[in-house]
Design a protein around this nucleic acid. Structure first.
Lengths: 150, 150
DNA sequence: TACATTTTGAGAATGATTCTCAATATTTTC
DNA sequence: GAAAATATTGAGAATCATTCTCAAAATGTA
């Protein structure tokens, strides 16, 4: 059993919830993805092999995975909520290219120190952060520069 | 004429758009608020004096204000998009209390330097950032501590 | 003032998310 | 291991924020 499964099983039993086939399928799909997932994408992934899983159940399961500390809701994108892994991942910074929509992840180690410090000054107890930086990725910046010069 | 009005008028004329009574009402409502506003709140503010303004028009106007550099979409909260002033405001960090929902704003001056530096390392051109920190505000932390001790 | 162009209000349409409920699966009890 | 107790599920309906449609009204321009 994978570590994330153990964690989920523990969370479920601690809360008198049941480990079902469907929940297991959803968990696996979530951890099969790398970057960010939205519910609809998960639904399509799962539907391929298991056409009987309902969209509603996926919506219902996401908060459980969040509560279990496995994923978090990190980003709203194309009018949909997106989730990303928390379990086994350091928190990080998202760079969102305004031109092509690409998402780049960079380390947030220094940031976290900075924030703990900064929030303490305001008697605020730091739990987590979400930082999205908008701008232009390398490729798009070059492409746009070329356009302007013409 | 207020500075933000000037900016809006300029934006409109640069884009062959018209300055209408309704747009002016919306602009004023937006700048009458301090913290963050969602469209529904604006709608209710405006409706009090001008019952003929339509919700749809407010939705249509928000992107114009964003484009004009007056506001930005900063936060999703209670399933609604929230906007905040950009014009005349330094960018800042949001501290969101997970218990009471209060939003505290703290300065992001140092952060901005840090991010410009950090993104440059990845050949990414920094434009803007949104940083939301979740945690517990002073009051809630104390209240919760008390509960635990009991 | 009249024309060309934008904008508007109202309500319909859309799309993500949540809810309802009867049928089904899981765990627990004996 | 079967039955009882409880939790979960799929399907579709309901909700709610946001967007679209379109005929009527407002605006800027000539």
């Amino acid at each position: 059993m994978k570590d994330y499964e153990k964690r989920f099983v523990r969370y479920l039993s601690e809360n008198s919830l049941k480990l079902t086939r469907t929940r297991r399928l959803i968990l696996d799909a979530v951890f099969k993805t790398h970057d960010h997932v939205d519910v609809d994408t998960l639904y399509n992934m799962i539907k391929a092999d298991h056409s009987d899983v309902s969209l509603a159940t996926i919506y219902r399961t996401m908060p459980l995975l969040v509560e279990a500390g496995l994923i978090k809701q990190s980003l709203r994108y194309q009018s949909k909520d997106h989730y990303e892994h928390v379990f086994g991942h350091r928190n990080h910074i998202h760079l969102l290219c305004e031109n092509c929509g690409k998402i780049i992840e960079i380390s947030g180690r220094h940031l976290e120190e900075f924030l703990k410090n900064e929030t303490q000054k305001h008697s605020f107890e730091f739990i987590d952060y979400t930082l999205n930086v908008t701008g232009l990725c390398h490729k798009c910046r070059k492409a746009l520069n070329r356009k302007i010069k013409r």
